[in-house]
Amino acid sequence: MCGGHVALVVDAAAEHLGVEDALPGPCPVCGSRTGVRWPSGTTCSTCEWAWGDVPDGELPPPRVDVVYYLRQRDDFGDRIKIGTTANPRQRLAAVPHQELLAFERGDRTRERRRHAAFAADRFPGTEWFRTTPALLEHVAAVADGIDDPWALHARWVSEALALRG
């Protein structure tokens, strides 16, 4: 290719860098159908997994512990559950709630710290807490800038897969 044509190709490609577009198929990590084009290739727009990289199917999924915040409004009032799990889809399916407020990376140690911080508002013998301004402020800080907690979790799983090699 001559220099002039190379310049045309570079200019045309530069117009599409960082552009969100449909992936050729679902992301193998999170299932998203949208990606972003970069000079090095296309990445999933949700979890940033490089399109074309295949997770090793023989390895178990990476463990990503999260502290979750669920809101429940019922006959018992307005309350928030602070819990932890390595499998949030399975766990949240088993816990009645109306709204997933946020995910925070962390295990039982972080969960215990959150329980201690809001101990005065805890319903005795449970992981449920009264919905107070202080607790809502904390949840808002954890969720700051995150529209979809599931997209954040997908990114954490993707990062864990990438670090595993």
Score class of each variant (00 low, 15 high):
1 M>G: 09
3 G>Q: 10
4 G>Q: 09
5 H>Q: 13
5 H>T: 08
6 V>C: 10
7 A>F: 02
8 L>C: 01
8 L>G: 01
11 D>A: 15
13 A>M: 07
14 A>Q: 10
15 E>V: 14
16 H>G: 13
17 L>H: 01
17 L>G: 00
20 E>V: 14
21 D>Y: 08
22 A>T: 12
22 A>F: 06
23 L>N: 02
27 C>D: 02
27 C>K: 04
28 P>H: 13
30 C>L: 05
31 G>C: 09
32 S>P: 06
32 S>F: 10
33 R>W: 07
33 R>L: 11
34 T>E: 04
36 V>Y: 02
37 R>V: 12
37 R>Y: 06
37 R>K: 08
38 W>V: 02
39 P>N: 00
41 G>E: 06
42 T>C: 14
45 S>I: 07
45 S>H: 12
48 E>A: 11
49 W>R: 06
49 W>A: 03
51 W>T: 09
53 D>R: 15
62 P>N: 13
63 R>C: 04
67 V>Y: 09
68 Y>N: 15
69 Y>P: 08
69 Y>W: 09
74 D>Q: 01
74 D>N: 05
76 F>L: 05
76 F>V: 02
80 I>Q: 03
80 I>D: 04
84 T>Y: 01
89 R>S: 07
89 R>H: 12
91 R>A: 02
93 A>Y: 05
95 V>A: 07
96 P>Q: 14
96 P>E: 13
97 H>V: 13
98 Q>E: 14
101 L>N: 10
102 A>G: 15
104 E>R: 15
104 E>T: 09
104 E>N: 07
106 G>D: 11
106 G>Q: 13
108 R>A: 15
108 R>W: 11
109 T>I: 13
111 E>S: 04
113 R>H: 05
113 R>S: 05
114 R>L: 09
118 F>Y: 09
121 D>R: 03
122 R>E: 00
123 F>N: 02
123 F>Y: 11
124 P>S: 01
124 P>Q: 02
125 G>H: 04
127 E>I: 07
128 W>T: 01
128 W>Y: 00
128 W>C: 01
129 F>H: 14
130 R>P: 06
130 R>Q: 14
133 P>T: 04
138 H>R: 07
138 H>Q: 08
139 V>M: 11
141 A>W: 03
142 V>L: 00
143 A>W: 03
144 D>Y: 07
146 I>T: 08
146 I>G: 00
147 D>Y: 04
148 D>F: 03
150 W>C: 02
153 H>R: 04
154 A>V: 08
154 A>W: 07
155 R>Q: 05
156 W>R: 15
157 V>M: 10
157 V>T: 13
158 S>K: 14
159 E>Y: 04
160 A>Q: 05
160 A>F: 04
160 A>W: 05
162 A>N: 06
162 A>T: 12
